[in-house]
């Protein structure tokens, strides 16, 4: 009798759950914070999907992919949001993602043809400094100056990896020399972006490796225009953030619907001032002036995912030996 009651209870509970399907989205920490895009995206999508959108935050982009690989095919995730082009080849090789057939009229400086990974925002890596501080125009000029920089470690952070690929893309075989020349400018290498940016704000360095959109935050949120991002003559390396549905998604239809929503005007207009990146699709309402491009489109550098994956290990070795004086 007791068992019967219990079983009925379970049945009712699962029926109730079935009435509002749950869409599980894994993302990086800052996306789902109170001041990130998460809450607004959730509200907007739930208004149109008759579902319950649940974000599960897991560290940064790299940690996100690790988590999914640890869970494997058993994962509850329908969508993973927040990988980038440097991680895409690894992500594809896991076989854990499925094509979503979502496309849009992307406003990226390059053509996007991938049918699995959907770009939702992007930015350029750049050195950020103070308006009254040193403003070198290239890596060579930076290396020749006595400006001090804080960078992130390519072994533990996405911007660090971006810088590594940036120098590699711009200088190829000469990259180790550039790193050697830069080594006396580097104050220190931090495990992640937060520590580096914090130390820059404390005045420990003239420049920090960040994004071209960083000054926009200070202008819009703090009314402070003293921070500048530097376009480099070699070009600036891009970061394109992508989302994809998993191959074993419990809710594949909802996942596809969510990815399409992500590149719709509704979601795209939320992202710039919450995630502080450029939208992947030009929004209907123009962006604030602080988001004006400082890097011309023909100076955008990006390795293809396969190129980036192949370059990573040798570039890392060169980086390590060049800086280990």
């Amino acid at each position: 009798m007791k068992h019967l009651v219990l079983a009925t209870g379970c049945l009712l509970a699962s029926q109730a759950a079935a009435q509002t399907p749950v869409l599980n989205v894994y993302t990086y920490d800052s996306f789902d914070s109170d001041w990130g895009p998460g809450p607004q995206i959730e509200q907007a999508f739930e208004a149109q999907c008759a579902c319950d959108l649940v974000f599960t935050p897991a560290g940064d982009g790299a940690a996100l992919l690790s988590k999914l690989r640890l869970e494997g095919a058993r994962s509850k995730a329908d969508v993973v949001l927040g990988l980038d082009t440097a991680l895409m080849a690894q992500a594809r090789a896991t076989g854990l993602f499925a094509p979503a057939q979502v496309s849009a009229d992307y406003a990226l400086p390059l053509a996007w043809t991938d049918d699995t990974f959907v770009p939702f925002d992007w930015g350029y890596f750049a050195f950020v400094g103070n308006a009254d501080g040193p403003k070198p125009h290239s890596f060579r000029e930076l290396a020749a100056s006595d400006a001090k920089i804080v960078i992130e470690d390519p072994r533990s952070s996405t911007p660090g990896l971006g810088l590594l690929l940036w120098v590699q893309k711009a200088y190829g075989d000469e990259a180790p020399e550039i790193w050697k020349a830069l080594s006396d400018n580097i104050v220190t290498v931090t495990p992640g972006w937060s520590e580096a940016y914090g130390m820059f704000l404390e005045g420990e360095a003239d420049l920090v490796l960040s994004y071209t959109t960083s000054p926009a935050y200070h202008v819009i949120a703090e009314d402070d225009d003293s921070k500048v991002a530097l376009p480099f003559e070699e070009g600036n390396y891009m970061q394109v953030e992508v989302a994809a549905m998993t191959a074993h998604a419990p809710q594949p239809d909802l996942a596809r619907q969510f990815l399409a929503f992500l590149v719709s005007d509704k979601a795209q207009s939320i992202l710039p001032e919450t995630n502080w990146m450029y939208p992947a699709v030009k929004p209907a309402t123009p962006l604030p002036a602080a988001f004006d491009q400082i890097v011309p489109a023909d100076k955008a550098l990006l390795m293809s995912p396969e190129e980036a994956e192949a370059a990573r290990a040798p570039a890392l070795d060169a980086w390590r030996s060049a800086l280990a004086r």
């Binding site: 470690d153 533990s156 080594s183 580097i186 104050v187 220190t188 290498v189 931090t190 495990p191 520590e195 130390m199 980086w319 390590r320 800086l323 280990a324 004086r325």
Partner: peptide, 15 residues
């Protein structure tokens, strides 16, 4: 130690 060593160590030789 990880973060302390890296941040104050000043680079990859402090790995």
């Amino acid at each position: 130690s990880f973060a302390v060593a890296l941040i104050l160590g000043g680079g990859p030789r402090a790995t």
